[in-house]
């Protein structure tokens, strides 16, 4: 029994009648860490989460939680709790009854379970709304109640299915911070499914990029950003240019690229986006490849460029990162 990990997947496969959603993936998630499963839609990240939760049958392989094989256990016995994408609050129950539901079905006395539910509503700052129905709450408030309902079972692992996707951008950043704080305070493992690399970068201790039912790369956000394993990962997490050179396929961070009058790769300026602290210049190279440079505002305005003009995109060889797989231009 290895207690260094809260969750271990051992060549877990999810097979549907005629397709494979998750193809023999193995993953270890360290104790009390924040793990983000990241990938485009249909990459198998949600199926993986649902298999950990026990809501999806595991076709092959094993899931271990805190060292115990839970492959054939129902959700509640796994020590997991799930927060659903649409929150899935019971619409006919008040907030406090929603949170108390898991205790109600265990036969906990009404006064006891309501007191406990109120504690957890208080944890997510929703105690004042205890007697409201979910329909009377905003999306963000519903989410807090859903969070309280998931946490009240005191899970070892909290599973979150795209928890921020329904929120507006301002709220998203606020809730993001709260999730991270909560994870640290409760010292349990969060597994968070998302298709947004910003979200994953901001939250994750461990970032897992998936594609086509496979894990393409797993590591800390910094590791992934500085050493993407493949063209796919580099493209998906963004911020990189991909070039085919005589040294092989390389990724170069866009903020390490600059514009010059000669040398490097000739390219036409397509668009200029002012982003406050920096300026993003989109380019098309002679061979028709998309590239971009992120320039500090001072650097850009010292020598501004107009869309339509031709420049040379340059970078130093030390910033090149060689990729494992073949880079296919799109």
């Amino acid at each position: 029994m290895d207690l260094r990990y809260d969750v271990e997947l051992i060549s877990v496969t999810k097979r549907y009648e005629d397709s494979i959603a998750v193809d023999a993936i193995s993953l270890r998630i360290p104790k009390s860490s924040y793990c983000c499963l990241l990938g485009p839609s249909g990459c198998g990240k949600t199926s993986t989460l649902r298999m950990i939760a026990g809501h999806e049958e595991i076709s092959e392989g094993d899931v271990l939680i805190a060292g115990q094989n839970v492959t054939d256990l129902p959700s509640i016995k796994r020590g997991t709790a799930m927060m659903f994408q649409n929150y899935a609050l019971f619409p006919h129950l008040t907030c406090i009854d929603n949170v108390a539901f898991s205790m109600q079905v265990r036969g906990v006395a009404k006064t006891v379970r309501r007191a406990r539910a109120l504690e957890f509503l208080d944890l997510v700052q929703m105690a004042d709304f205890a007697e409201r129905l979910p329909a009377q709450l905003s999306g963000g408030q519903q989410q807090r109640v859903a969070l309280a309902r998931a946490l009240v079972v005191e899970p070892k692992v909290l599973l979150l299915d795209e928890p921020l996707s329904a929120l507006d951008p301002f709220l998203r950043i606020k809730v993001r911070e709260e999730l991270k704080r909560l994870q640290r305070d409760l010292a349990i493992t969060f597994i968070h499914v998302t298709h947004s690399q910003d979200e994953a970068m901001a939250l994750a201790d461990q970032m897992v990029v998936m594609e086509g039912g496979h894990i393409r790369q797993s590591g800390s956000p910094r590791e992934l950003f500085e050493r993407p394993a493949s063209g796919f990962v580099a493209r998906f997490i963004g911020g990189h240019n991909l070039f085919s050179t005589d040294r092989g396929e390389v990724a170069v961070r866009a903020d390490r690229c600059s514009l010059a009058d000669e040398g490097g790769t000739p390219a036409q300026v397509i668009a200029v986006e002012y982003q406050g602290t920096s300026v993003r210049v989109a380019l098309k190279t002679e061979r028709g490849l998309d590239a971009f440079a992120v320039l500090p505002d001072q650097v850009f305005f010292a020598a501004p460029v107009e869309p339509g003009t031709y420049r040379h995109l340059v970078w130093s060889r030390g910033d090149e990162h060689t990729l494992a797989d073949t880079f296919q231009p799109r």
């Binding site: 959700s75 609050l89 019971f90 898991s102 079905v105 998931a150």
Partner: peptide
Amino acid sequence: IDKNLIEAARDCGAS
């Protein structure tokens, strides 16, 4: 009835 509600209930340990 949203099928997620059934899963959520099962997640809470309901038989």
